[in-house]
């Protein structure tokens, strides 16, 4: 029988039908592995319910504001890049695939394979955040902030940064600022990984190196996103004045629709869209970060060979959480990026 990993930690022979098999992963207050698994499963589903309701408030605000001010949403969505959003969608979908695959691997007790799939999932999460950082920083450069700070002026192009690291790399200062913390983490994880390696603590070393690889994913996303961003901008600049005129024309039409009180100084409150945008994507990004932490923990447990066919709950549960993060993005993408 048994697709059980025989590791140093799992000594006892595993019997499916033995309900008194109090292996070390069965908490003292549960009678059977199945009861423990069912409890965890229901727990995580219920937790997902709370997450859905948590986000529902934002969707409610979104629907309300869009319903009453569709013109704001149309005007504002021009600042969002469908390609970057689309790439991020695919990245998240791919991470969902690897996550689901990791669950399968854990279910079959293939810890090593599961750990690799989880590492890919972690990297995808970081790539997603890297692309997001490019998107955010690009908006900040254009003075596109939440409603009260929204100060975008039509046709405004920020000067290319000339000083410091930003000038040297030819990217904006805001992006550099967003990269500081990931860079520190990358270096920190690398150092920790090496230290544990020297101390011959294999599992910890593997964990920290995996986390360093994950942070590398962030820079992969950021660099890729920035290259695309630069290309898109130069294409727009070469595309020239035509596009600009069209945009200006559209704006004039909107002004006519909104009514005569709209003075040029007080255009429709486009910043409102970005309030919603930043809150929704920001909260989603926090969930991605939370997922990265949970995935790192799973990675560690996989390298310690903790999972086996009657005990894979943690992978399954984190997987469900990760799929929910994906689900939310599946809705956020069309609602924020695809507005005509």
């Amino acid at each position: 029988m048994s697709s059980v990993d025989t590791t140093a930690e799992v000594h006892d022979e595993h019997h499916d039908d033995d309900h008194h098999d109090h292996g070390e992963f069965i908490a003292h207050h549960f009678d059977t592995p199945e009861q423990q698994y069912d409890s965890g499963k229901l727990g995580i589903w219920v937790f997902l319910v709370t997450e859905v309701l948590f986000f529902s408030g934002l969707f409610c605000a979104y629907v309300l504001l869009r319903y009453h001010q569709p013109e704001v949403f149309v005007a504002a969505s021009e600042h969002l890049d469908k390609v970057l959003g689309g790439i991020n969608t695919i990245v998240l979908l791919f991470s969902s695939l690897t996550m689901a695959w990791a669950v399968r691997a854990a279910q079959l007790g293939q810890n090593r394979f599961a750990s690799r799939l989880i590492l890919i999932t972690m990297v995808c999460a970081a790539v997603f955040l890297g692309v997001k950082a490019v998107e955010y920083s690009h908006k900040w450069d254009l003075n596109i902030y939440v409603a009260s700070h929204y100060n975008y002026i039509e046709g405004y192009h920020p000067d290319a940064p000339s000083e410091g690291l930003a000038g040297a790399l030819g990217v904006s200062q805001s992006l550099i600022n967003l990269c500081v913390l990931p860079a520190i983490l990358l270096v920190g994880f690398l150092v920790a990984g090496v230290i544990y390696r020297v101390r011959e603590s294999q599992a910890m070393s593997a964990l920290y190196l995996a986390m360093a690889v994950m942070m590398g994913g962030f820079f992969l996303g950021a660099v890729g996103g920035q290259i695309y961003q630069n290309a898109a901008e130069s294409a727009a600049a070469h595309g020239g004045d035509h596009g600009h005129d069209a945009a200006a024309g559209e704006h004039a039409e909107e002004a006519a629709v909104t009514g005569p009180d709209t003075t040029s100084k007080y255009p429709p409150p486009i910043g409102m869209f970005f309030s919603i945008y930043y809150i929704m994507t920001g909260l989603h990004a926090f969930h991605v970060i939370g997922g990265m932490v949970a995935l790192s923990w799973l990675y560690y447990r996989c390298t310690r060979n903790h999972f086996r066919p009657d005990y894979y709950g943690p992978v399954d549960f984190v997987g469900l959480y990760w799929h929910l993060v994906d689900l939310i993005w599946i809705y956020l993408f069309p609602l924020l990026y695809l507005i005509n």
Binding site: T50, E51, L53, F54, F55, S56, G57, L58, A61, L65, Y145, V146, A147, S148, H149, P269, G271, M272, S275, I276, Y278, I279, L283
Partner: peptide, 22 residues
């Protein structure tokens, strides 16, 4: 119900911190 309180308070927090205007 409680998650909705969470998001409400978070929005209020953001309203105080950044004045998001919702």
């Amino acid at each position: 119900a409680t998650p909705v309180l969470g998001i409400t308070l978070l929005l209020l927090f953001a309203e105080r911190a950044l004045h998001i205007g919702i």
